[in-house]
């Protein structure tokens, strides 16, 4: 098993930390992982993306140009990464703020209204975990116990009281994801 993922959106949406939790969960399940961010001036409001690879085998290149899954959280990222999904791959996006929906017919497309759900429930800080839940529903790569351990490892100890809220958000995400085609 090798899953090559790009997570892309605005800075401040928790794109990088979502990738980190995913990668750490992979480590906990004894997988090979890599986490490669776009870095630099991309602060809050700018674009941010991270490619995460989770594999049973040694990872050769952490830099990749085609993905099994693209998780897209704004229009710029849709424009940039829709065509980077491998044929037969999977595109997950939050329709909030999307003006041009994906057009490709050779990939699976899912929506997750994570932004609306987070606003309604006052869960803005775990928006990214709702999205992660949706991804894990579509691609159950990692067992929940290892996601729990991944959260423990990637959050500093003083935030461990927030783990149940994060896990609740992941479960919510699993119920919100919808297959478009």
């Amino acid at each position: 098993m090798t899953e090559e993922i790009i997570i892309a959106g605005f800075g401040g949406q928790g794109v990088l930390s979502m990738g980190k939790i995913l990668a750490y969960s992979g480590v906990m399940e004894n997988k090979e992982v890599s986490w490669m961010p776009s870095y630099g001036p991309e602060m809050r409001g700018g674009t941010a993306n991270v490619s995460v690879i989770i594999s049973d085998e040694r990872i050769s290149s952490p830099v990749i140009n085609a993905f099994d899954t693209a998780i897209v959280l704004n229009q710029q990222s849709m424009d940039k990464f829709e065509n980077a999904v491998k044929p037969g791959g999977c595109l997950i996006y939050d329709p909030n703020g999307i003006t041009r929906h994906p057009e490709r017919k050779d990939i699976k497309v899912y929506t997750i209204a994570a932004n609306d759900a987070a606003n309604e429930m006052g869960l803005n800080k775990v928006f990214n975990m709702i999205v992660l839940g949706g991804f894990l529903k579509v691609k159950p790569l990692l067992q929940p116990e290892f996601i729990h351990k991944g959260l423990e490892k990637s959050l500093p100890a003083r935030h461990h009281n927030l783990i149940p809220e994060n896990e609740k958000a992941i479960e919510l995400g699993k119920t919100l994801i919808k297959e478009v085609r």
Binding site: K20, V27, V33, S34, M36, Y39, P62
Partner: peptide, 10 residues
Amino acid sequence: DGVIGQMMEK
């Protein structure tokens, strides 16, 4: 280089 410095691995 920036790739090896910025990426996370085990």
